[in-house]
């Protein structure tokens, strides 16, 4: 893949920020107490990060984002008239609570790989075929399209759909890649809120 349109900050986000996205949502939820607001907090933190000039110098991006979430939440709380002090108290523990030691990175990396494979396995078959052949097996797009007897544009649509579904499920969208129906999944919360 050529890298021309991909900026260093995109790479940094992909590498340092998005792997922790679910953790950020959990942290934001602990601060705000509402799913909607938590999502806004995370979105706001990401948007501010994109604006930040010194992003490359951030030593521990994960901890930094958690601190940002806290700051943004406090800013918002201050704008309100009635402040619930329990929320302040809770936010004090966030940085510490979220600081898992780094030596678990290898194990965590394995866990992430497993998660990535699980999600890919759940993709609809047509999208999965295209995605796996392109991204995992490294075949060229022309090769894949020709072999499947589909047009370049259909190929691109399937590939895009795969990336879209994976992105949405990273974001916590449970409808994106629902677990396959089966007895093992009956206990799983199904999209309700």
């Amino acid at each position: 893949m050529p890298v021309s349109i991909i900026r260093p900050i995109d790479i940094w986000f992909a590498e340092q920020i998005f792997p922790h996205e679910q953790r950020f949502h959990a942290a934001a939820l602990r601060i705000s107490g509402s799913r909607d607001e938590a999502e806004e907090l995370v979105q706001e933190a990401f948007a501010r990060l994109f604006e930040l000039e010194g992003w490359a110098a951030i030593e521990d991006p994960r901890a930094y984002v958690v601190r940002m979430l806290r700051h943004i939440a406090i800013e918002r709380l201050r704008r309100r008239r009635i402040v619930d002090f329990r929320q302040f108290a809770d936010t004090d523990h966030l940085t510490l609570a979220d600081d898992a030691p780094d030596q678990h990175r290898i194990a965590a990396g394995r866990e992430r790989l497993r998660r990535a494979s699980d999600l890919i396995a759940k993709l609809p078959e047509r999208c999965r075929t295209v995605f796996v052949r392109r991204r995992i097996q490294g075949e060229s797009s022309q090769e894949i399209a020709r072999d499947l007897g589909i047009s370049q544009s259909t190929y691109e649509k399937r590939l895009a759909r795969a990336v879209e579904l994976l992105s949405r499920s990273w974001q916590g969208d449970e409808d994106a890649l629902p677990a396959a129906a089966g007895p093992a999944n009956t206990s799983r919360r199904s999209g309700s809120r």
């Binding site: 790479i11 998005f18 992430r112 790989l113």
Partner: peptide, 15 residues
Amino acid sequence: FARALAVWREAQSKA
């Protein structure tokens, strides 16, 4: 877009 890129790259690390 950065998230889509992250998804894309994650699949590469699996590869």
